[in-house]
């Protein structure tokens, strides 16, 4: 039974996710979220974080599920950095920082409840693909 140390557990809709803390730069409460009209649903808008333009990603949409509600000012978010991209993942609630166990391929928390462990590299790659697709559609004659 492998152990995963230091993950942040958060909930989004009915689902619970975990992401290793080493990817997380900051846990923030979002400022004003500016909508980006031509972006795919996975990109829920942009915010100003310490003077830098930061995209807000919708984890559900990135995982191929129906996108969650639009990101709004005051929502919680994890600022993650992967693949040279810094972005904010909108969350409903940050639960806690914990150590997890991997049990027969499934990740469970201390009380044995299942969680989805997110890989920020894959999330960012997927986000780039989706946005790239939207950009390509824009450029196509």
């Amino acid at each position: 039974m492998a152990e995963l140390r230091n993950v942040i557990v958060f909930s989004l809709g009915a689902a619970r996710y975990a992401v290793e803390i080493r990817w997380v730069r900051e846990v923030v409460s979002l400022g004003f979220v500016t909508a980006v009209p031509t972006a795919p649903p996975s990109l829920g808008g942009v915010v100003n974080l310490h003077g830098v333009i930061l995209p807000v990603l919708d984890v559900s949409a990135l995982l191929g599920q129906p996108p969650g509600p639009p990101a709004r000012q005051g929502d919680g978010a994890l600022v993650v950095e992967a693949e040279g991209v810094t972005c904010a993942l909108r969350v409903d609630q940050v639960d806690h920082v914990a150590s997890l166990h991997e049990d027969a391929g499934a990740v469970v928390d201390a009380s044995g409840r299942p969680l989805t462990l997110l890989d920020p590299i894959n999330l960012v790659r997927r986000a780039l693909e989706l946005v790239g697709g939207a950009g390509k559609a824009e450029l196509a004659p």
Partner: peptide, 18 residues
């Protein structure tokens, strides 16, 4: 302000300001 790699493919926008 530059848009960064995640927004750059969206051609309608050149950059952003605050």
């Amino acid at each position: 302000k530059p848009l960064g790699p995640l927004l750059a493919p969206l051609t309608l926008y050149a950059a952003a300001t605050i």
